[in-house]
Computed example of a mutant assay.
Amino acid sequence: MLTKRIIPCLDVKDGRTVKGVNFINLRDAGDAVELAAVYAEQGADELVFLDITATVEGRGTLLELVRRVAHTINIPFTVGGGISSKADVSALLNAGADKVSINSSAVRNPDLINELALEFGSQCIVVAIDTRNPSLNPSPVGRDSASPSLRGEGLGVGLVHTHGGRKPTELHTLDWAKEVEERGAGEILLTSMDADGTKNGFSLELTAAISKNANIPVIASGGAGSMVHFYDVFTEGYADAGLAASIFHFKEIEIPALKQYLHERGVPMRMSR
Rank of each mutant, 00 (worst) to 15 (best):
M227L: 11
Y238E: 13
L93R: 00
S105F: 01
P134T: 07
V69C: 03
N25S: 12
L26P: 05
A106F: 01
Y39T: 09
F202M: 08
G184F: 08
K19Q: 02
S226D: 00
G96Y: 06
I83A: 02
Q123E: 15
S135N: 15
L243C: 12
D51L: 00
G58Y: 04
L159S: 04
I188Y: 05
S135P: 06
V100K: 04
R5G: 03
I52G: 00
I113F: 03
T131D: 06
M271Q: 05
E252T: 02
N94A: 12
A29N: 08
L189F: 11
S211A: 14
N74V: 14
M269P: 06
A91H: 10
I188H: 04
R273E: 14
A257W: 11
E205F: 11
G96Q: 06
I113E: 03
G154N: 10
T55L: 00
T61A: 13
I253G: 03
H172E: 15
L35R: 04
M271K: 05
V160H: 12
R143A: 09
A239T: 09
E236R: 15
I83G: 00
D88M: 06
G80K: 00
R67C: 15
F230I: 05
G30S: 01
T207S: 11
G165M: 05
T207M: 09
A128W: 02
F120W: 15
V12N: 01
D232A: 06
S211P: 07
I73P: 06
P140D: 11
V126D: 00
D45R: 07
R265L: 13
S246T: 04
E179Y: 14
R108M: 06
G223V: 03
S104Y: 00
T162K: 01
I24H: 09
Q42T: 07
K259Q: 07
G81V: 03
V100C: 08
F250M: 08
R143G: 05
L50S: 06
N94S: 09
G82P: 10
A70H: 14
I216E: 06
T78P: 05
S105R: 08
A241E: 07
L92F: 10
G15I: 02
D98H: 14
